[in-house]
Amino acid sequence: MDDPSSRRNRIRDEVNRLEAGGFIGGPGRTSVTSDLSIDESLVLHAIGWEAVELVCGVSTYSIQGTLWNWGSGEIVSASMAHARALGDAVQKLRSECLGVLGHGVVGVHLEVSVERYLVNAVLVGTAVAPIAGGSPPAVPFVSDLSGRDFALLHQAGWDPVGLAHGASFVYAPRRRAMDTVRQSTQNVELTNYTEALYSAREGAMERMQRRASELGAGGVVGVTVSEGPMEFARHAVRFAAWGTAVRRSGRPAVLPPVELVIDLDDEQRAFDPASLRGSGL
């Protein structure tokens, strides 16, 4: 294998063997679908896991009777809709995962869109299971970590337990008309926005942590936050955070020593032909 010419002969031998009908599987066997890259599959395989099925969970919740632009404090119905949409999407993902006897879902791609009257949460990932088999846990884990990250954590003695998430929507009360006039020519802090953002951020993080504790996690890794203006609500701010809750597995950590390398690649170098496909279908 180390000799280049033997590597070159390998595909030839395999092609010839295939033409002779020498392959495993075929009609009657269960197919595996996976959106993992070959690298991720290999790394997963190295720790004794494999992909089972591409799974998804989608939930849409309506936001009730909200007056986005007038009020004070938290916009409870929006925060609730966000939490339920994500919670239900995770549930659907889990039940798809259990349906194919997966032990958990890795590489979950999470997409949440907030519109004036609804929150839509879409989760897509790959259900995985140990190659050795065994019955799946009652509650399979859900993680937005890549297959590679999952394998690294696994080796380091940590297991993902679930997706911890939290979101908060808060009104940024309008300034009094007097203030608006007075401040229009000054560069001053808009304390209403500062306070609202603070409150939303703390609320969302708090919820995420609470959910992680409920899952029995020792911590949350890879936290992603999402904030930004909502075009339909200029006097409200939103903040959402999610990450993978992890806990110690009790297995000994087996991480090889780390080497230092300098690579000569530039960032944009890896060309992905699929990029030519553009944003369409």
């Binding site: 280049p4 590597r7 290999l42 790394v43 590679r148 690294l152 780390v258 080497e259």
Partner: peptide, 12 residues
């Protein structure tokens, strides 16, 4: 000329 066999690495 043949390229050397690539090594498997995991970049951290």
């Amino acid at each position: 000329v043949t390229l050397p066999k690539p090594t498997t690495i995991i970049s951290l």
